[in-house]
Structure formats: structure tokens, C-alpha cells
Design a protein around this nucleic acid. Structure first.
Length: 586
DNA sequence: CGGGCTAACCCGGTTTACTGCATAGTAAA
């Protein structure tokens, strides 16, 4: 094996293969097959190498004989013949043209074959010289559109997606501004924002209003708008100062349900839902549900109506990713998803004793005011110098303050004494066992050496998970959205070990992390892990970030029972006390 | 190319809008 590929890299290779086959004019079903395989590999909760070794690649939807063989070749030899051949036949610079609006595979093929154009620069030159309009299927107008498209791609400040936490305040600001416009009946943000995906491509707003023009006017003149890309009577498009694009669409109130459903997506979900509709004799569009035989339109004012008329339970937006939710809704086995109100406490909280902004008292009061029954105080351990990590001596001093705060706040609320203990580079923990044993609950995490090789990182996590006094693994992958990839580790082995030992895995609610990521969280639940949702709050205001973590858990199909901080405190502590016994059994 | 089917095979991922051209390519959820 020359190198190890991630699921994402392999998915990307099959994406590229699909693009190149498409440019070559391959039959659409073959292209689609590679795209479908790529999507399913990217959404796989487990390491593709494990499936490979088990001979179970064919269990991935969309992977049959031919693609199995190609994955095998890639993992075995580090190379893929088909991919190498296509790359030698098709200039890679052609693939960049796909970003240009109105340039699809057919047109890319045309300019390449007829004019020998292989780069965006050459395309721009040819367009300026008026050479495109002579091609069959091209015209002067399309030529200028392509030119404008190239300009737009060049000017675009942020090409990629932004973390949900960045999009969130922008969307809230826009929603509250539009809500103020008189005559607004309904208003919603749709798209990946509504599905609470960890990153957002653009913002989509829908509105039903008496005076749509006034809403459009307000939308396009908001202070956070940098440029108005388009302003019409039913749709406006703007670029925000952050580079994010936002669209606003006007919807008839009577058609609100089908429109909101459509614009919420995901694309995969919509395709599957429409297929399902066809099977039941309906055609579904953003405008209506139409009986195919009679062509009679049924207008749906609510999303609930859309799903109900199709014989489905209502599918919450977080589940709409085309990952089995329609089948589950049909069979009435959608999970009762966790909600914020189910949570009884927060299991990662910092104070000024280490790098927090507020005292234990302030944090405890804020948590109590939110209706929580408990918080686990988890200041950093000694070796994390940058965060003022606590020595054991300081930890004992801290205990006295915790006791005082507990006495002050009285029954019905408790500050638990814990710590966020470093898992050191060699897998040992940053406090001796007798110190760990004296804490109510121990959270362990990796902050350094995330770039270690796979075997070492995995071994560190496994050591921590098999430790008798480690109860929770915090922000497991260590990723920082848009900044840093998570650790490369054998997650399947780690999740299995966590399930076996009853070690809880954290969904860190901080929108910069959202870690565990939704896909790994779902796999963890499949393997029988229990999870916790924690904010990692360093100030009282950060307790409010919890909804981001709840969203990740919902996207992982988590029920309240799956999340240990919905449990009563006694159950949680009993679960932790069981760990040494569980280890002996394992 | 995948998958369901009864086979050495055939059908298949939705719906709508727009453009610019006359039948189809592209984009969007």
C-alpha cells in the first residue's frame, strides 16, 4: 500500500471520474453511477478500509462489481488505472470550467474539441474575441453570459462554504429585519441552514407577504448587504459583506408547504421524495402536489400536509439528507429526536480557574437559570499551560469553592467536580489515577499532537477509553471547521471501544467544532455508544450554544435515551461508577 | 454502472425555469 486514502479523498476521485466521463460524452447512467458511489462513500460512517478488509464494499449503496474492483485496486496498489487514463486524456484545467455558470459538460467538450480551449483563461480570451458565438449551440448572448460568469467566479470572495456558526447570526439579523416589514405572513430560512448542516453554502429565505415589493426593498438595502446581484418581483439575490450569497423568494401562502419543503432540500431528499410521490400517483413540485391521472393540483400550505398526503410521518429538516428517512417515515419508525428541553445539564464547563471568563458561581447561576439540574466543571489539567491548567493542589482548592457554591445554590442544582484532562502524546493522562478517582466525572481530550500518525493517535484514544476513570471523550476529532481537519484515526475502532466500555463521546456544541461530526455520531449510535452534548462554555453566554450540539445529535438520529445528559444525575453517576467493572468484564 | 429480476437483460435520479434555438443544455433544491 503506497498511501492511505480517506473516504473523502476516494469520493473526490470518483467525482472527478464522473466529471471526466461526462465531458467524454459517456452514457449518463454510468456517470450517475460514479456520482452516486462517491456520495455514498462520503456519507459512510465508517472507514472504507474496514469494509474492504471485510470484503463488504458491495454493501455500500451504488457500489457493484465494477466500482468494487476499482476501490480494491486503489486501496491495494495506491493507484487507479481508469483514473490515470482519464487524467491523461482530459486536461485537468477543463474541470475548473465547471464552476462557470452555464458551462456544463457538453459545452466544455464543445469548446475543447472545436477550439482547443483547455483553460478558463483561454475561454475568456475566446469569448472576448467573439469566437464562441460561431459554435453550434452557442450564440452571442450565451457568449456574453459566459464572460459574465467568468467575471463572477473571479470576483467571488468566498467560493466555499462557511461554518454554520458564521451563517447563524447573519441569518438571524436578516430574519428579524424582514419580520418587521408590515404585512409579512410567513417567513423562514430554508436550505442547509434549516437542516442545520455544519457548513452552509448560501442562505435561502422564503416569505409570504401582502406587499412583497416592500420585503424585497428591505432585503436588498440591509446594511450587511454588499452588492445586489438580482432584484425581481419574486426573487432577489444579494452578496453579503462576508461573501456569502443570500436569496429571497416570494411564495404564495397557499403554496407555502410545498415551497418550503422544496427549498429546504436536500437535493437527495427531494429526489427520493418525488420518486416516492410518483409511486403513489402524485407529481410533487415546489408549487403543488399534482394527481398524475387527473392533473388536479392539491395546494399544501404546510410541510406537514405535504408529508401526510404522501403517507409519511413528518420528517424533521435535520433528517432530510436522503439517508433512509423516507423509508423510516413510511414505516413509522422515525426516531423521537432529542430536543433542547430534554437536557438536564452541561458536561463541559470552564471557569476562571483555568481559561474561562467567569467564576464558578456565575457559571452555576447561569446554568441554573437555564433550567439545568447540574453542570460538570471541567477546568484544564496541569500540562495545558496556555490555558492555565490546574495542578492537583489547585484542584483541591477549587473543590472548596465548588462546595461553597453548591451550599449557596441549594437543592435541585449541583456543580459536579470534574476536569478536562489532557491525553498526553504517549496516551497517558495528565493526572495520576488517585486524583482522577476523586473527581465526580472525568472528561479527557487531545489538544496537542493531533497530527501524529494514525496508529499513534488511535492508540492514545484507545488508552484513554480503556482507562477506568475516564468517562467522557471531549471533541474527539479535534477538527476546527474551516481551519483544521480532525485527527486521522481509526474511528471505527475508537467508537467500538467506547461502546464496549460505556465511555461517553461528546458532541461539542461550539459551532467552530461540532465534534463529533454528524456522520461519526450516527455511526457511534449504530454501534451502541452513548453520547453527551456539551457546550464547552467559557462564559455564561456560551451555554446558549447548546442548540448547535442538539442539531448535530438530531442529524445523527439521536433520541433522548442516547444522550447521557438527558438522564437524571443519579443515573449518570451510577453509569460512570460502573466503568471499572465494565472494563473487567470486557 | 447498479440493481432488480427471472436473465443471460433492461431500465434507471424529480421537477421547473431560463435561454436561445427549434430540441436541448444548464441549474437549482
Amino acid at each position: 500500500m503506497e498511501r492511505r486514502w480517506t473516504n473523502q479523498e476516494i469520493a473526490q476521485i470518483f467525482e472527478n471520474i464522473a466529471d471526466m466521463l461526462e465531458i467524454q460524452g459517456e452514457i449518463p447512467y454510468k456517470v450517475m453511477a460514479y456520482r452516486r458511489a462517491a456520495e455514498n462513500i462520503a456519507a459512510l460512517g465508517r472507514d472504507i478500509y474496514d469494509l474492504w478488509q471485510e470484503g463488504a464494499l458491495r454493501t455500500i449503496p451504488g457500489v457493484g462489481e465494477a466500482i468494487e474492483e476499482k476501490i480494491d485496486q486503489l486501496l491495494r496498489t495506491g493507484r487507479l488505472e481508469l483514473y490515470e487514463r482519464l487524467k491523461s486524456e482530459i486536461p485537468q484545467s477543463l474541470l475548473e470550467m465547471r464552476q462557470i455558470p452555464d458551462m456544463g459538460p457538453k459545452r466544455i467538450k464543445a469548446v475543447w474539441e472545436k477550439l482547443g480551449i483547455t483553460t478558463v483563461e483561454e475561454l475568456e480570451e475566446a469569448a472576448r474575441a467573439g469566437k464562441l458565438r460561431n459554435l453550434p449551440g452557442f450564440g452571442a448572448k450565451l457568449e456574453s453570459k459566459i464572460l459574465a460568469g467568468i467575471e463572477a467566479v473571479k470576483r467571488r470572495k468566498i467560493a466555499g462554504r462557511v461554518p454554520l456558526g458564521v451563517a447563524w447570526p447573519l441569518a438571524q439579523e436578516i430574519l428579524s429585519a424582514l419580520q418587521e416589514v408590515p404585512g409579512v405572513h410567513r417567513l423562514a430560512a430554508a436550505g442547509s441552514f434549516r437542516r442545520m448542516k455544519d457548513t452552509i453554502g448560501d442562505l435561502d429565505f422564503l416569505v409570504a407577504a401582502e406587499d412583497p415589493e416592500a420585503v424585497m426593498e428591505r432585503f436588498t438595502t440591509l446594511p450587511i448587504v454588499e452588492t445586489v446581484l438580482l432584484k425581481g418581483s419574486t426573487k432577489s439575490s444579494v452578496r453579503l459583506r462576508t461573501g456569502l450569497q443570500a436569496d429571497l423568494r416570494v411564495i404564495e401562502a397557499a403554496r407555502w408547504g410545498t415551497a418550503l419543503q422544496y427549498f429546504t432540500g436536500s437535493q437527495q431528499h427531494n429526489i427520493q421524495l418525488r420518486e416516492h410521490a410518483l409511486k403513489r400517483g402524485y407529481s410533487l413540485s415546489e408549487y403543488a402536489l399534482t394527481r398524475v391521472e387527473t392533473e388536479k393540483e392539491i395546494l399544501c400550505a404546510t410541510e406537514e400536509e405535504v408529508y401526510t398526503r404522501l403517507g409519511l410521518a413528518y420528517i424533521p429538516p435535520e433528517l432530510r439528507e436522503g439517508r433512509g428517512e423516507i423509508e423510516a417515515a413510511l414505516e413509522g419508525r422515525l426516531p423521537r429526536l432529542i430536543e433542547i428541553e430534554d437536557l438536564q445539564g452541561d458536561l463541559q464547563v470552564h471557569s476562571t480557574w483555568s481559561d474561562g471568563q467567569a467564576s464558578i458561581r456565575e457559571m452555576a447561576r447561569a446554568a441554573k437559570a437555564k433550567g439545568y439540574r447540574y453542570i460538570l466543571l471541567t477546568d484544564h489539567s496541569q500540562s495545558l499551560g496556555v490555558a492555565k491548567g490546574l495542578t492537583p493542589e489547585r484542584l483541591w482548592e477549587q473543590r472548596r469553592e465548588i462546595e461553597a457554591v453548591n451550599a449557596e445554590l441549594g437543592d435541585g442544582f449541583r456543580v459536579l467536580h470534574g476536569a478536562e484532562v489532557e491525553i498526553r502524546a504517549d496516551g497517558s493522562l495528565d493526572y495520576p489515577d488517585e486524583v482522577l478517582a476523586a473527581l465526580d466525572l472525568v472528561v479527557a481530550s487531545v489538544h496537542t499532537g493531533l497530527r501524529q500518525d494514525r496508529e499513534r493517535v488511535t492508540a492514545r484514544f484507545l488508552a484513554a477509553i480503556r482507562h477506568p476513570y475516564v468517562h467522557i471523550i471531549a471533541h474527539p476529532t479535534g477538527r476546527l471547521l474551516g481551519e483544521r481537519e480532525g485527527a486521522d484515526a481509526d474511528w471505527e475502532a475508537i467508537l467500538r471501544a467506547a461502546a464496549e466500555t460505556g465511555t461517553l463521546l461528546e458532541i461539542n456544541a461550539n459551532p467552530a467544532r461540532l465534534d463529533l461530526p454528524d456522520i461519526l455520531a450516527r455511526r457511534a449510535l449504530e454501534l451502541g455508544c452513548k453520547l453527551v452534548i456539551s457546550t464547552d462554555a467559557h462564559s455564561p453566554g456560551e451555554f446558549d450554544l447548546i442548540h448547535f450540539g442538539v442539531a448535530v445529535a438530531r442529524r445523527a438520529w439521536a433520541t433522548p435515551e442516547d444522550i447521557a445528559n438527558t438522564w437524571p444525575l443519579e443515573r449518570l453517576l451510577a453509569w460512570a461508577k460502573e466503568k471499572p467493572r465494565r472494563l473487567r468484564r470486557a
